[in-house]
Design a protein around this nucleic acid. Structure first.
Lengths: 193, 193
DNA sequence: CCCATATCTTGCCATTGACTAGATCGAGCC
DNA sequence: GGCTCGATCTAGTCAATGGCAAGATATGGG
């Protein structure tokens, strides 16, 4: 698409990342091969090493990009419930990113970019939980935050692993999660978000 | 351990599976290598192929074993909440199994043993949800089931990926989940399990 | 005792990840 | 224009892996 093949690719890093996302979305992270990505990009087998040190370096970059997008997606949600919906929507929209993000054995844990992006996402997530009392009651708040996180994360994870295929049955996952969260967090007039 | 080395190992299949569990628990499923497992068991590099066709065959066996253990663990729980606790306890006790079970891209989806074991586990899980009305109201029940499943699964997944390390802070995960589930599913005297 | 079968070994090949050395491009500078 | 210098990419190599084929060895049934 970038027309001619010159010695310098021009945007190899991005090309490799998008190719990686394709492979991951289609066959999972285990199917990612640096040489295959190089072939798809039309470069030599050693070219990726210059942008990402090694295989884990590439997956780390995928995770970092994912956390950056994730933070943006979460930041746009007004209240706690919509943040959960955004959580699920992100997983459904960026399955490849999501999978890699939450598989720590795939990336370098000490990568600065990854840590920074994850910190941003964590903050975006936490600010939705702690929005109730200025400096909440501690224990209970923390538990409530973990509960909300678990609910959204579990739904997203089960969705991506195909375990909700029959339960959803052609239904919109976002909408399903919205009503699900409603029934759980505000059963009969209790404290909602 | 098994004293002498004869031509026939005696229990190679099990030896390979337990070695695989060690590797997965320590470094994740991606680090599993058939040749490495063979070395650990003291057999030649091609021996594993006779018990498990290939790498995905071995991981499929791990998943199948996991689902079998999982079904047993769930069956022992009296009510819905304890079933959730059992869910989390299983993940904490069998992290390697759990990881492989919920990564469909690692195993053969059409394996009969896997399907049978998973069906048992699914049934053990569902019977805890549908235990309320004989043939419940359909939509809401399904949603409630998905909600409970999502909560337990999300907690378990976040726990294994290390995302709850600081939130738990040396606390017992089981106990934390128990009180968490209590505060979510029965906030102020509503319908519990 | 003998044979059929399951189990394990040896040998082999293609692919991959990772490393090294060298080629090519591009930008700044004189 | 011609130069150097660094970034980018190529080519070549090596060890490790997965998977296959052919053969050796043990085990149990007849």
């Amino acid at each position: 698409m970038t027309s001619e093949r010159t010695y310098h690719h021009g945007d190899l890093r991005r090309a490799l990342l998008t190719a990686a996302l394709d492979v991951i979305a289609a066959e999972g992270p285990a199917a990612v091969s640096l040489r295959d990505l190089a072939r798809r990009a039309g470069v030599s087998h050693a070219a990726p090493a210059h942008h990402f040190k090694d295989r884990s370096g590439l997956l780390t970059a995928v995770a970092a990009d994912g956390y950056a997008l994730f933070a943006d997606a979460l930041a746009g949600a007004p209240d706690l419930r919509e943040r959960g919906v955004a959580y699920v929507r992100f997983a459904a929209t960026h399955p490849a990113h999501f999978q890699v993000m939450f598989q720590p054995d795939l990336h370098r844990a000490d990568d600065p970019d990854l840590l920074a992006a994850r910190a941003r996402a964590t903050e975006a997530l936490r600010s939705g939980v702690a929005g109730l009392p200025p400096a909440g009651r501690g224990e209970d708040d923390r538990l409530a935050g973990v509960a909300a996180w678990s609910l959204a994360h579990g739904f997203a994870t089960l969705l991506l692993s195909g375990n909700l295929a029959d339960a959803m049955a052609g239904r919109d996952p976002e909408e399903a999660f919205r009503s699900l969260a409603a029934s759980v967090f505000a059963p009969e007039g209790g404290r909602a978000d």
